[in-house]
């Protein structure tokens, strides 16, 4: 990374040492001290995100850990009954985890071909002018509020599904997955497109010059080079779908069961937190249980994000030589 300051800064320090006498030196030193303080301030500002991450972990765990005074970790993670308001209550989150996994997987099955297809179109097929219009449109899809997608799934799509397929409820895994896919597509598309553009141009040109068609160049040269970036995009898109709340709260149906088909209702982890926190007394067992769910959700998305970061570093295209 280019840092225009590094050479200058060294020269500046050296200069201070050379003119080591009189008022001149004192003024120089105080101004250097000020620069050091200002520098420290900005380093601290940079580290602030890390501080917030630490605080999130601390508070999530501090509130969540309270549950495990009364419920064992294995009962929590492997229990198949989630009845937090019964007496005695059941705090088994397995159905919620399975619900989250179901909508995340199905939504990525829908979003990956569409997202990658969109990226390939933008990078390979579209002319400059089409791209200028389409790219903002994809970004616009990314900025659509999740509550709007939840609303559309619930009010428009669910009654239609019920009618078309004669199923008991339109609020189910499939409907939620469709809406989540719309949230994941822009993430997948824009990261994949960046990855496709990052493949060195000379590789494509060499392939085309040897007589390969654009499609052959794409599949044998450009896609292998962009694979890590596309993989990163897919993982981040899945992570976004998994953590998304309003869609699954409004559209997944809310039944805490392990689904047998894609037309069953489920209650993914974020939906449970959002639906129940409002009616939960501060500091109760149920309150701690919802924070414990937050811990599970946080760790699941963190794992996805770390895998994405590792993926993009591990398979990074470093110039033409690594292919």
């Amino acid at each position: 990374m280019l840092n225009p300051f590094s050479g200058q800064a060294l020269a500046h320090k050296g200069l201070g040492r050379l003119t080591s006498a009189g008022i001149m030196n004192r003024r120089k030193r105080t101004s250097t001290e000020r620069e050091v303080i200002i520098r420290r301030f900005f380093v601290a500002a940079g580290l602030f995100s890390l501080v917030v991450m630490t605080l999130i972990v601390l508070f999530l765990f501090a509130e969540g850990i309270g549950l495990f005074r009364t419920v064992s970790v294995s009962d929590f993670l492997l229990g198949t009954a989630w009845y937090p308001t019964y007496d005695p209550p059941d705090f088994g989150v397995l159905p919620l985890i399975v619900g989250s996994a179901a909508v995340t997987l199905l939504s990525s099955l829908i979003a990956v071909p569409l997202g990658v297809g969109t990226a390939l179109y933008l990078a390979e097929v579209a002319g400059d002018r089409t791209r200028e219009i389409l790219k903002p449109a994809v970004e616009l899809l990314a900025s659509l509020p999740s509550v709007v997608l939840g609303f559309v799934g619930m009010v428009v799509l669910a009654p239609l599904m019920q009618q078309w397929w004669d199923i008991p409820t339109g609020l189910n895994v499939f409907n939620a997955s469709l809406m989540l896919a719309l949230m994941a597509i822009p993430t997948i598309a824009s990261i994949s497109e960046d990855a496709l553009h990052a493949v060195p141009r000379e590789l494509n040109e060499a392939s085309l010059a040897l007589g390969a068609t654009r499609w052959e160049t794409l599949t044998r040269v450009q896609l292998p080079g962009a694979l890590s970036g596309i993989g990163t995009g897919v993982i981040l898109g899945m992570s976004r779908a998994m953590g998304e709340t309003m869609v699954v709260l409004m559209v997944a149906g809310g039944a805490a069961q392990i689904p047998g088909s894609i037309f069953d209702s489920v209650r993914p982890l974020p939906a449970s937190i959002a639906a129940e926190m409002g009616e939960t007394p501060f500091g109760s067992e149920h309150y701690h249980a919802l924070f414990a769910i937050g811990m599970v959700l946080f760790l699941m998305t963190l794992a996805f994000n770390l895998v994405a970061a590792w993926f993009s570093r591990r398979f990074q295209q470093k110039g033409a030589a690594t292919l």
Partner: peptide, 28 residues
């Protein structure tokens, strides 16, 4: 190392689900 830590913090903060931010805001 400092820059790597800062980048790691920002990337992961961006990936925290919004409902977890809600829980964090509630607790803090």
């Amino acid at each position: 190392r400092v820059l790597r830590l800062v980048r790691l913090g920002i990337a992961n903060l961006a990936g925290v689900p919004s409902v977890v931010f809600g829980l964090f805001g509630l607790a803090l």
